[in-house]
Each structure stands twice: as C-alpha cells, then as structure tokens.
Write a protein that binds this DNA or RNA. Structure first.
Lengths: 327, 327
DNA sequence: TTGTAGGCGTTATCAT
DNA sequence: ATGATAACGCCTACAA
C-alpha cells in the first residue's frame, strides 16, 4: 500500500512538509537547486505518491466529474460519454459514468452519491423525474450541464439536438421519394426529444398535405413494441415507410421485419434516428439521422469545465444539427 | 454548494459531532430516542450531506474501483465494463473506466493516477507493457484483477477466455463443413489472447491434416489490414473461409469484402471471434465465437471486491468457455 | 448514552 | 528560500 507520506519525504530529504508540498505542486520559484534535488531523490527512493484524497479535502476539488445517463444501452449515450471522457483526459480530469436506467429514484441516488463524493460537476441526461432536484442544484450554483433532453423552464445549460427539424427533413425526404403512408415508432413520450420527433413528423405530413393517422404513430415501451408493430402491419393499408425513433426501436423493428419476412426497402423503407455502428455495412445500407454525438459530448464537457473553473457565464440552450445520411 | 458540515448539524441538534457520526453510520445501539430524533430533524432542516472525501481520508477507503481497459473500442471491453459496473452498483461501489488505448505509457499514467486517488482496487486489461508495475502492485498486496490477457509468471488473479480451445472448435467446424483453405486474421501478436487464437487455429489444421500456410495467417494493425487482405485474395488459391480475430478485424474484413463484391457465404465464409451486437440480424446471420463477457465481468468484480474486503484467498487463473454460435 | 481530543495527508498563511 | 501551524470534515478511542 501507498503508506509513505509527505512527512516521510520531508524527513528523508531533511526539509519541511511545506517545502515538499511546494515541490509537488511545481512551485519552484524560490526553491534552491539543492533542496530541489534532495526532494526529488527522496521521492524516488521512497516511491512516494501524493494522496489525492487529502489534497481534495483541503482544496475542495476532486478533479472528477460525474456523468449520469438515462439509459446506457443507447449507442448515443455511449458515444457522448466516450467523447466527454476524451475531453476530460485532455484536461487532467476523470469521469465516473452512472446509468440511471430511466429510473428517477436511481437518478436521484446517483446525484446524491456523486455529490457526496464531492465530484466537481455533473453532466446529466435527465430522466425528467427530479425537477426539484435539478432546480436546487442549479440554484445552489453547483456546476451542471444537461444533455439530450430539455426540461422546460429550467435555467441551466443544455446541449440538445434539433430533433424536430431533423425529423421534419427526414420525413420530407421520404415523401419526396414517393411515400404517402408513413409511420413513426418511438418509446413513450415522457421526454422532450421524443415529443419533438413526433412533432417534426406531424409537421412534415401537414406541410405536404398528408393527413396524420393515429394508428401510424406508435409510442410504446420496447417490450410492447412487437405487438404494436403486428397491429400496424395488419392494417388494411400498412405503411410503406417507417421511422425508428432510436436505435433500440430500430433493432426491434428489424427483428420484427425479419420474422415477418418483410424486405427492406422492397416491402417497407426504414429510417433510423440515431447512429447505428455499421449502418454502412448492412445490406442494404441504412438511411439514418445522425446526431453529432462526439461534438455534443465535447461541448457539454467544455461547458462543464468552464463552469467549474468559473471561466465564463454560460449560454442556456445549445442546439446541434443532425445530419440525414441517405443510403 | 454542500457547505453544511457535521459540526453544523451537531450544533443545531445540540449534541456533539461524535453523536452525529454515530447516527450517520447507523450505530443507534446506545442512542437515546430523543437525540436520534433531534439529529434526524437537524439533518433534514439543514440539508446535510456527509462528505465522502473526509470519510475516505480517515477510513482509507473510497468505495471506488478503477477499470483500465486496453482498448475501449472493442465491444468485449464495453460489455465487460458494463457488467462490472452493475456488480459495483449492487455492492454500493462505483467504477471509473479508463482507456489505455493500447498504450503502455497511458496505462501506467492511469494506474498511478487511480492509485493516487486512492481507489480501492483495479481491474486491468493489461497492455503487457508494464510488467514490473503489475508485479509491484501484486507484491504490495494492492487489490488487482487482470482480465482477458495473460501475463505469464505473474502470480495474480486472472479472468480469461479459453481462446485456444474456442478457436480450435470453430476451425474444426469449418473443416467439417468442407473448407480446406482457411485463413485467420488478427491484430499483432503482442498479447496472449491473440497468440492463443492462432495456436488453436494451427492445432485444428494439424489435427485435420491440413498444412498451415504462412500466407493464410495475417497478424497486422487494423490500418494495414486492408492491403493484407488484398494480397490474400490475390493468391492463386484464395481462402474459402476466414476467421476474424476480433470485432475490429471483422468490420475491416466486411468492408473489404463489400468493396470487392465478394459475397458471404457464397464466395467466402466468415467466423468472428467476438460478440457482434446484431449478428443475428445481419443478412446472412453471422457465425460467431461468443465470449461470456457478462459473466467474466461479474467474476472479475466479485474477485476484486472479495480481495478488497479480504474475504478470501484468490484463485490464480480462471478460464471461461466461449460458445460457438453457428448461423 | 454522549462528549473530548487527536489524527488522516494535504495545503495555505504567515513567519523567519 | 524554507518552516511552523492551523485548517479541511470526518472517525474513533477513551473518558465521563
């Protein structure tokens, strides 16, 4: 175990703890060449490693941030997290990732836990179920950045995708390709991003004078998606195109189509809202709406670190443009 | 900010700090009903949250473990990490994941960093480039578990896959299907798991009286894989089957085959050593060698926590059986 | 049953 | 240029 402490180094080098501390923190300004060498040697001899816990206690900074994702299973979440981690690495920080599993209780527990561990700030994909807590943190001035889902009326930095606009464009593209019977499937409309995607869908239909049909709009838990799809494709006029609201929905649809021996794109066309790892390698290649996960993660991390270092007053809501990749 | 401390609670409740400490740590044994209620109230009123940094300093435990993966890009690494996190959650611990990026320097930096932060233990996918450091940790009795790659002669707990055996079986299966010209492609043979896969391949050929050919065995960086595949398929007798040593190699091969308009399985058969997220949904479905990532992660976490809690003397090397999923 | 005092390993302030 | 001393917030004997 690392039991050699600064006091040991000090004794070994024949100087005081303060001087060793100076050395550790690269404050060589007034340090004599001799002491410097002695300390260096002592550290090497003893194999001394500073204790960050003690340092943190004193400085009230842990150099750790927390990431709380609503659902780690999404490709998008993992890409964003990775990008945040990269950004942290470059800034000598570390990240703890926690998976709230779409569960408000778990989210609260993690927020409390991470704050108890004194992490310097939090990036949250909010479940939306702890509005009071979000608000309290913001009011206390605790550094937070929210991602992916908007919480209306919350005055805090948000990093968001332009869901509505992107969906609008994708559906319009489908319509231009000649589709008239378009369906959309998402998970339950409990968070802003899903609602916005539905909005974009409706608006596109409207603008192209297609009447939206309630039975073409599915919003359900993944576990019940299969039977909903069944119902959808048993309609007299089943859709010729369907937009999958995210990657999980996509996988479920794919498996459904395969089971029913429906071919893409002959029997039904598919667009996915989310990056799919090898969309370019599937057969046929998949048309997707790609969110700039990497940029969004980097931005969130940047905003958080700026906040932690009190470097800037933060903007409130930043929207990123998604890209429709037609294949 | 959490500025309210135990002393504040004590003062507010009209008791001493120690009593509050007792309360926080659920030592109600000798505590009067009255004090208990007063403290409870004080905590609620003040919104007190214990400071884990201070607690950690005193108790020399942070309730955090570190995971250092050699390359986070692999599906296997992420599945294992997820599984470790789940296990930690159930045991009131947290995990910090670091990506060494196959870089020994980075690996060392992370190990030092995490230990400086006093994490309670480490799970490492070793790059193999810091043998002395691994050894030192083990000798110091610092809790460590190694994953995925063996480091010969290191007396420490390892959680490993039976790479050789699994590859042997996969190749044998191909041979039974009538293949005679079998190739294998892996990343460079710098770590044990890749070497073992090659060994299993050779052994299977041998046992079936097929002469191994050097030009059918590719071990190269991903960046140079494409040109190696080019060479492979320009041979007079190109292989009819190829085993991809991991998921990254697989993606590269897939993209190569697509470019050359080679069909699976008509022109060439493919087996992948690694779980591919939607292998069952690709067309045609992919035959894979699946490592039990979830179980391996849970086991590693279990061993580490046991070690941290000094609950057991640890076994040295545990091998997990991979499953050949034929599709 | 509760309080007092000291220490965990640093850093910060102020002397010297 | 370097050192003494007091925090940081909590836990733990031991005393009362």
């Amino acid at each position: 175990m690392t039991k050699v402490t600064m006091a040991d180094v000090a004794k070994f080098a024949g100087v005081s703890k303060s001087t060793v501390s100076q050395y550790i923190n690269h404050r060589y300004e007034y340090m004599g060449e001799g002491t410097r060498r002695k300390i260096k040697e002592a550290i090497e001899q003893l194999g001394y490693q500073p204790n960050y816990v003690a340092k943190s206690l004193k400085q009230k900074r842990t150099f750790i941030i927390g990431i709380i994702v609503a659902d780690i299973v999404h490709r998008f979440s993992t890409e964003v997290s990775r990008s945040i981690e990269d950004f942290c690495y470059e800034n000598e920080m570390q990240a703890i990732i926690c998976n709230a599993d779409n569960n408000g209780k778990k989210e609260k527990k993690y927020i409390d836990m991470l704050r108890a561990k004194q992490v310097d700030g939090l990036i949250i994909f909010p479940t939306g179920q702890n509005e009071d807590l979000y608000k309290k943190m913001v009011e206390e001035g605790y550094p937070v950045v929210f991602m992916d889902r908007d919480i209306p009326h919350l005055k805090a930095p948000f990093v968001l995708a332009n869901n509505q606009q992107a969906t609008y464009e994708a559906i319009s593209y489908f319509i231009q390709k000649g589709h008239q019977r378009l369906a959309i499937a998402t998970q339950p409309l409990t968070i802003s991003s899903r609602k916005e995607r539905i909005e974009g869908y409706k608006q596109a239909l409207n603008d192209h004078h297609i009447e939206p049909r309630a039975d073409y709009m599915i919003s359900t838990d993944i576990s019940e998606l299969h039977q909903n799809l069944n119902r959808l494709f048993q309609l007299d006029m089943p859709p010729t195109a369907i937009l999958a609201g995210n990657d999980l929905v996509f996988l479920e649809i794919l498996s459904f189509l395969q089971e029913k021996k429906l071919k893409i794109p002959e029997d039904v066309s598919l667009i996915v809202f989310d990056n799919i790892p090898f969309a370019h390698l599937t057969n046929p290649p998949m048309t997707i709406i790609a969110q700039p996960a990497f940029e969004m993660g980097a931005k969130a991390a940047d905003l958080l670190l700026k906040q932690i270092n009190k470097e800037a007053i933060l903007p409130e809501r930043i929207y990123f443009t998604c890209e429709l990749i037609c294949r």
